[in-house]
Design a protein around this nucleic acid. Structure first.
Lengths: 216, 216
DNA sequence: CTTATAAATGAGGATTTCCCCCTTTTTACT
DNA sequence: AGTAAAAAGGGGGAAATCCTCATTTATAAG
């Protein structure tokens, strides 16, 4: 019997094109496509459970991390193969912690996709060579402790960082957060420490890298 | 005779999947795919000129803007249909100034792609409704003057901005650029003016938005 | 009830950033 | 050549950022 696949990608073009590609692999059949996380949660049923979910990470509202966590709690048998543009180790690690079983870059070749799906079915995991080497070489200890959000920053600190990614001064941020400027300075200090940066600009760049702040 | 198409996208998966999709449209045939701008410049010949080039914007080394400019100088008859994830007006305008004849979002539906290609062939242009409305509503005057690089920044200013997207102080930047700190302050002032920002953080965010700096 | 541990805050100062006004040098144009 | 316009550089000062030492407050643990 053919292995059933579901594709989740907010880019319809990508999703349908991928679908066409996979149809050509015999032993695989595409059950359906979803163009958002919500759509997936609606379309999937107890009698329509795929073997594999090809999951795009970067999506609005419900991103790949959330979708993956939802899947693993509601349909733990589903094997999630993450599909991403970026090889940022934070993304990879977060994805694995969310329960993904493989991580594939969108720049890979079609036969690599086939190979990955084969591996997921038979061995239960797959990481492209590039991803695996990244994992080995560049693990930032700060990333390891928190499955969602970012390296160990608490809620207040995350709010602070988001506000700091703007032209507001720290005292204006203090007003917005309803605390004293000195408290904001405390947030700054601890965030600098945790993110290992030495300036506000460094903090902003790092915040973008690890996904705390998204450039509009 | 079928309309010939070439696909340029650094994501092989995307390129090949797209290719498969287009093969299904009769009246269109895919001549070849290129996974980088350089590959396109090598594969295209006087006896192998496509009617349409589907061009991804975000690519390493040679991005879509460069590829488009190269195409319009060497093969001006080629109709370039830009394909992008983002609807940032800067990207759209830059692409049009580079000679693209249409702009499509990757999130569109397959039939929209078909429709766009049809329109490009028959009418000579195509902009998805979403893109068109963006153009009308959100044009930033700063963007209009410069075809490449970004809103009117010169080379030195661009170097400065890139260095400013780091934890270097302005005087360290001055050292790197081999000019006096005061000169760097001049760069800062003119860049603030041109990009319409009020702080270094604002400049960094804007630089990322308009593509001067790419977050690693 | 103490202890300790984290969060919020205060005071002060060094450095950097931001913003003026102004001079010299270089480049461009007619 | 002469004039205009950038580009590079100088000085100084107000504001913001960064850093250090220290105090209060809340919260959890023994």
């Amino acid at each position: 019997m053919a292995t059933s696949v579901v594709i989740v990608d907010d880019h319809e073009l990508m999703a349908q094109a991928l679908s066409g590609l996979i149809q050509k692999f015999d032993t695989y059949e595409v059950l359906f496509e979803a163009y958002s996380g919500q759509e997936l949660t609606q379309k999937i049923h107890y009698d329509l459970i795929p073997d594999i979910v090809l999951l795009d990470i970067h999506m609005p509202i419900m991103d790949g991390f959330m979708v993956c966590e939802w899947l693993k709690t509601h349909y733990p048998s589903v094997k999630v193969l993450a599909l991403s543009m970026s090889d940022k180790e934070e993304s990879i690690i977060r994805m694995l912690k969310c329960g993904a079983i493989g991580y594939l870059l969108k720049g890979c070749k079609p036969h690599e996709l086939k190979h990955a799906m084969d591996a997921v079915v038979s061995q239960g995991y797959y990481y492209s060579g590039y991803v695996a080497s990244h994992l080995i070489n560049n693990v930032n200890p700060n990333v390891l402790d928190n499955s969602y959000g970012s390296p160990r920053l608490n809620e207040r600190e995350i709010s602070f960082v988001k506000l700091a990614c703007s032209e507001l001064t720290y005292s204006q941020i203090a007003d917005k957060m309803c605390v004293s400027p000195r408290t904001v300075d405390g947030y700054r200090e601890s965030v600098f420490e945790k993110l290992d940066v030495k300036s506000r600009v460094g903090m902003v760049i790092k915040a973008i890298q690890i996904g705390i702040y998204e450039v509009p």
